[in-house]
């Protein structure tokens, strides 16, 4: 990055942090921190890739704008996390996004679930936005200042995502018979991928207070989601949890297609700048 683009923003919580600032900063995260940042970055990146599809296809122009905005926020979070991970792995954000293979990605299965109809997309948004809000609210206190700073910016944006998805769940669940049927179906299709979000693994033991143990988020996630579902006169779907594995590179059939499309042009011109 050229000097003229560098901002004077210091990486502390509360400053409006840009991915470029992180890329330009002199940071040296450990391999474990980098691995953790990859997880968070990949989640947001792949969901943004999914949500981008809605732009020009949404049920109302206002939703083209809203879903586009959410996708943009997520791309911003992904760029920050991947730029940070890149410092530890000697890669750029684009090396990581465009030149990793499928098993090298670290996203959980929920984030790559198909858009389906609008209700299924909203169900996914509901679960993701509540999970990310709880996660970033706690990551604010990370002993790693860069993770804390990224979380400080992201949590404000994700709070809006939470509001957006919650309002739509109410409208769809309590709107018409058709929308209610679709909302129930969307939630049921999405619910099996909740469990994976809250699984702790060895990396979390190593990272200690630099990271957030996913299992510690479950209780507040459940109570918020249950309260909203109750208001929407919906029930928690009675479906078994899917075996995850995204954090160790075991992915669903969906990821390959998403990456094929996302990476095709960059890989056609290796070494090119854009």
């Amino acid at each position: 990055m050229s000097e003229s683009n560098a901002s004077a923003t210091r990486i502390i919580p509360g400053n409006a942090l840009r991915p470029e600032d992180i890329a330009a900063a002199d940071l040296k995260p450990s391999t474990d921190i980098a691995e953790y940042a990859l997880r968070l970055g990949d989640d947001s990146l792949l969901l943004a890739q999914r949500l981008g599809w809605w732009i020009s296809r949404a049920p109302e122009l206002e939703e083209d704008v809203a879903l586009g905005n959410i996708a943009l926020d997520l791309i911003g979070h992904a760029r920050s996390f991947l730029s940070y991970a890149g410092h530890g792995l000697d890669k750029t954000e684009d090396d990581l996004a465009y030149f990793r293979r499928e098993p090298e990605f670290r996203c959980a299965h929920l984030f790559v679930q198909p858009n389906g109809d609008f209700a299924r997309t909203i169900a996914r948004q509901l679960l993701v936005s509540h999970y990310q809000f709880e996660l970033y609210s706690r990551l604010l206190k990370s002993t790693d200042p860069t993770l804390a700073a990224i979380a400080a910016k992201a949590v404000k944006e994700v709070d809006y995502h939470r509001d957006h998805s919650s309002q739509w769940v109410l409208r769809l669940a309590l709107g018409t018979d058709e929308s209610r049927r679709r909302m129930i179906a969307g939630l049921k299709l999405t619910w099996p991928y909740v469990e994976e979000l809250f699984v702790d693994d060895q990396l979390l033991d190593t990272l200690g207070d630099a990271a957030v143990r996913p299992s510690t988020l479950r209780a507040s996630f459940d109570s918020l989601i249950t309260a909203l579902l109750t208001e929407a006169e919906l029930e928690v779907p009675d479906v078994p949890a899917a075996i995850g594995g995204g954090r160790s590179g075991k992915h669903s059939e969906h990821l390959g297609y998403l990456l094929a499309e996302m990476q095709v042009l960059a890989r056609e011109h290796p070494g090119a700048t854009w």
């Binding site: 991915p19 981008g52 991947l82 996302m262 960059a266 090119a272």
Partner: peptide, 10 residues
């Protein structure tokens, strides 16, 4: 979906 860098995609 195919923008060749994350900055361009955004």
């Amino acid at each position: 979906s195919r923008a060749p860098s994350l900055k361009r995609k955004a």
